[in-house]
Design a protein around this nucleic acid. Structure first.
Lengths: 172, 172
DNA sequence: TATTGTTATACTCTATAACTATA
DNA sequence: TATAGTTATAGAGTATAACAATA
């Protein structure tokens, strides 16, 4: 949690007894300094899921900076790569991205030369989504970078816990 | 995941073999219908954390609609309630909310009569944050509603898994 | 009538920078 | 010089509504 924001504690000398330090140890002990009590948040899973999700996304964004793909863009490219010819509506429903937002994302990815929209032979309203050759190269590179990210995550959680949480959340 | 968006499948008759159904079973099998392959996302913990976080927040928002507190607002009220006299900067650092954004949130909560800012006797730059009487009543009500939310979460995960994931994420 | 993809709008959240008043 | 709080702005992300073309 210490790297949550670029403007935050990470940049400063670590202070013992900060809320962040206490959280890291899962402790509720108070020391000399004015540690902040999370109150009822301490018992809300959603709070901890949110903190973890922010940490994970920030690591992901840093890790994939060289291919300039956000988590959402990565998910779009990955799913198109795995399902060439997919329609926008199917993609939208799979990832839970609004059709309106997906349209704009695909314009951007198209402008960047990563994705392509071909007319569907079956339905004139629909488009078939494909990766371009460059899109496939980018996906391959992103795959490698995201593996590295995943290994950082594994290290951060510890292998056992990483597996446990992954299993649980996948079935969720 | 079936309730991810109000405009999505939850409203429709469940279809066997949808991507969501496959995800739930952790399977990659394809059936008759055009199930969508998640590709490499299937191996990215961040993807599943994000999906879970969205589900949890949406349930939380619905559950606390009657007190009109967003997850972020709830966290602010809860932490002020547990630490009367806290400064904005300490609160900002604890919750990872930008000072700028926190200032606006506190203005809104103040306008709603839930929070109060008193001048600090120690530092003229600083304010002491407190809940008003109404703020405390709202927090009490929110506490009850968020317990109910937590129980829905427990049910959704299953008690064992709920405990496991909470323990893991708390120590994260 | 319903669906696919589109544009537009509005609101939230995040990220910065710049400013004031204090320390 | 640094910190506490503020204002302003710009960019994502989310939620809607409305529309044209097509089914």
């Amino acid at each position: 949690m210490s790297e949550r924001k670029s403007t935050r504690p990470a940049a400063r000398p670590a202070k013992a007894g900060t809320a962040a330090a206490l959280r890291r140890k899962g402790a509720t002990v108070r020391r000399g300094k004015p540690a902040v009590d999370l109150g009822i948040l301490e018992d809300r899973l959603g709070y901890f899921i949110r903190r973890a999700q922010i940490w994970v996304f920030q690591d992901f964004i840093r890790g994939l900076a060289s291919v300039d793909l956000s988590p959402a863009q990565f998910s779009v490219v990955a799913v198109i790569g795995a399902n060439p010819g997919l329609s926008q509506s199917a993609l939208s429903e799979t990832l839970g991205i609004e059709r309106a937002r997906l349209a704009r994302m695909l314009h951007e990815l198209g402008d960047r030369g990563l994705t392509q929209r071909l007319p569907s032979p079956k339905d004139a309203r629909s488009h078939e989504l494909h990766l371009t050759a460059e899109g496939q190269k980018t996906l391959a590179r992103a795959r490698t970078l995201s593996e590295e990210h995943e290994q950082r995550l594994t290290k951060k959680f510890g292998g056992e816990r990483y597996k446990a949480i992954k299993t649980i959340l996948r079935e969720f």
